[in-house]
């Protein structure tokens, strides 16, 4: 898994690619929680377009990010969900709790 961050005014966009599983989910969780809990960025956006695979460890990291965002009053937005990611989120029945946008433009504008 690869993760990089871009900053746009008070928004941080994480571009994530590859597989999010038991081996790699800590690499996702750490920067997400730092961005929200320590840096207090008011809007954190995750670009998941290039994510090939996600399992329950990855979903758990997203849920942790969402909970951290709620704790500090920030927004936590996902966009670019491909079939694989969408299927797993739907299977988890947690898809409804996330703010999901179709595009980056929508995620930063709304």
């Amino acid at each position: 898994m690869q993760i990089s961050a871009r900053h746009l005014d008070k928004i941080t966009i994480f571009d994530i690619s590859g597989d999010i599983d038991l081996a790699t989910s800590p690499e996702l969780r750490k920067p997400l929680l730092r961005e929200l809990r320590e840096l207090r960025t008011p809007r954190v956006v995750l670009n998941l377009k290039a994510v090939r695979y996600i399992d329950s460890s990855g979903v758990a990291s997203l849920v942790e990010g969402l909970k951290a965002a709620r704790d500090v009053g920030a927004r936590f937005i996902l966009f670019g969900l491909n079939t694989t990611v969408r299927e797993v989120l739907q299977l988890s029945k947690l898809v409804r709790i996330f703010e999901i946008c179709e595009s980056e433009e929508q995620a930063v504008a709304t």
Partner: peptide
């Protein structure tokens, strides 16, 4: 229970 919004515990459900 999947109604609980919390990380973890999803593996077996999957």
């Amino acid at each position: 229970a999947l109604e609980d919004v919390k990380p973890g515990g999803l593996g077996l459900h999957f």
